[in-house]
Design a protein around this nucleic acid. Structure first.
Lengths: 334, 334
DNA sequence: CTGAAAGCGCTTACAG
DNA sequence: CTGAAAGCGCTTACAG
């Protein structure tokens, strides 16, 4: 592998000139520039990342901390990972992906060893140990998912409160009076997945405000429990005319299950949910839904993080950005 | 951030002693060791990754090149990414994930800049430009997916030939005489996805050897084309009693579609396929299938790669490892 | 069992 | 417009 010294020798200039030609941080005569460029091309020179990061204390790498919970639906995670990786690259960063169970330890290791310039925490929950680890490192970081205590943190999440209200209003406007909500599994509530109760509590409150009967139930995330749970829920609310699905694994199973029960959508039952366009495509889901916007969330998160890396506290106050909840009408309600 | 010099000062020893205490490459007196360990703990010292990689020319990072084709089923990719990341960590490596469209350029950039010790190419096709780029870098690499020319390469893939034979034999043993195969979309064949024709050609050949009528059809990978395509295929082979699904997106849609058509499995139709246990779980797929073993493939690939990194050509001859195709009986045939 | 020193490949203040 | 030199934080041959 060629070094900057090799390039300097071939071009007949000093190493600093090669470095400045690369960075553009001072002006170079056209003739010198040409010779340097030729030498770089001839030697296929690429600056060594380790040396550069040692000198500049910048790596051009962001650490992405992904966690997989048994009670969550793994394929949904990919929707977030991909746009994050792509947005990062657009801004000149690569992604170091860390999937360890002990996310706090992984985060600390990446930060303390200077492997990354910043950190993205995916699927953050209330009381998430990674958040304490992030605070301890003094590294720039951004959370996707809202914890309880956000002091001093940059956070991005979907506006689940607005999402729940929108869906409730949508059904009420169509004349529904008896609706069932299928939430994430109870275990998600218990371990601090704030999106679960933010959505449910907002739906319950909105329903009571406008006189809708709303029955909130826990869903499941693993077969065969999903099917049994959905059958039970539907059996126990025979008069419900609307169904709000806030559960990835359950809504993915719903089309087949409703077909088995002979329930037609929207003729017999109006169904609304919350998921992304990609998710709808992968699972052939035909329901009107709040767009969960993983691509936008990833983009906002990475943009915020890179500005924090570049400007520190001058990038503005730390805070929470809730992405607006927009409804995509797929005709599954009436 | 504390440096090795800070630790040395606090412990009252030289920097080399701290370094050797860390690496264990020479013996240290118990008393010195204690003082060094105390200082490391006190200062929360973690060696700087950039400095270490500059000195040792080793990064402890592997580059993972992921590609997303429009004609493939994205959620299936996660099955490979996760076990690769986890196996790598077990062996002391982190994963730099690269998803650029121009995979060859990304690979070259990662390798030439010395960001990684080795490369994993996911979903390799025949004529894959990343393979040429890999050869040019002289970096250790492993391919998941079999290209046409494997000279000098370490390759890991599922044994699709054995998989196809197993499934054909399984159906024939049960007495089936007329079977339909749904392959990946035509576009996957055209762009060099060797798994598509390795599986199809082996199935066709095996069928002709043992006198089975086998109709091979192209599937689709995007709705609504998937449904239309499957309906057409089933309509045009009304006498077929068996169905071999070699198409992730189509098989994911099959349970609902068969239900809509009133086709019961296995009473009216025997169905076999090829996917992983995770995939079956995510999509509630009830079909007997060849286990595609993404976890095992990832593990074999990473193990092979790390040995190549450690021992170069002494790690044994370059070659192709085909993972055995095992059938998981889910009772969808008779 | 331990230390002083060289050097990995960059970037950048300093000097001209 | 350009160059010589220092130094980022490690590891390891060399010396004792």
């Amino acid at each position: 592998m060629a070094t900057i010294g090799d390039v300097a020798r071939v071009a007949g200039v000093s190493r600093s000139t090669v470095s400045y030609a690369l960075s553009g941080k001072r002006s170079i005569s056209p003739e010198t520039r040409r010779r340097v460029d030729d030498a770089i091309r001839e030697l296929k020179f690429t600056p060594n990342a380790g040396a550069r990061s040692l000198r500049t204390a910048q790596t051009g790498v962001l650490g992405l901390l992904v966690q997989f919970h048994e009670d969550e639906f793994a394929p949904a995670m990919l929707q977030y990972i991909l746009p994050i990786t792509e947005t990062a690259r657009t801004l000149g960063y690569d992604i170091l992906m860390m999937t360890e169970n002990d996310g706090a330890e992984a985060l600390t290791r990446a930060a303390e060893s200077g492997m990354v310039d910043g950190l993205i925490l995916l699927d953050v929950i209330d009381g998430d140990p990674r958040v304490d680890a992030l605070r301890a490192t003094h590294q720039p970081g951004v959370l996707v998912g809202l914890p309880g205590d956000t002091r001093g943190l940059d956070v991005v999440d979907l506006d689940f409160v607005a999402a729940a209200r929108n869906l409730v209003d949508h059904l009420v406007e169509l004349g529904h009076r008896d609706v069932v909500l299928v939430s994430p599994p109870r275990h998600v509530f218990d371990r601090g997945g704030t999106y679960s109760w933010r959505f449910r509590d907002a739906a319950v409150q909105r329903a009571s405000e406008i006189g809708l009967k709303l029955t909130a139930r826990y869903g499941e995330s693993q077969q065969p429990a999903i099917d049994a749970n959905l059958h039970e829920i539907l059996d126990e609310s025979p008069d419900a005319t609307g169904l709000i699905m806030h559960n990835d694994a359950s809504v993915a199973a719903l089309p087949r299950l409703l077909h088995e029960r002979g329930v037609r959508v929207p003729d017999d039952l109006s169904v609304v949910s919350l998921y992304s366009r990609d998710f709808a495509r992968w699972f052939s889901l035909p329901y009107t839904a709040i767009e969960s916007s993983p691509g936008l969330l990833g983009k906002v998160a990475i943009t915020q993080l890179t500005q924090r890396i570049a400007h520190g506290d001058d990038a503005g106050p730390h805070g929470t950005r809730l992405v607006a909840a927009e409804i995509v009408d797929r005709g599954s309600t009436r």
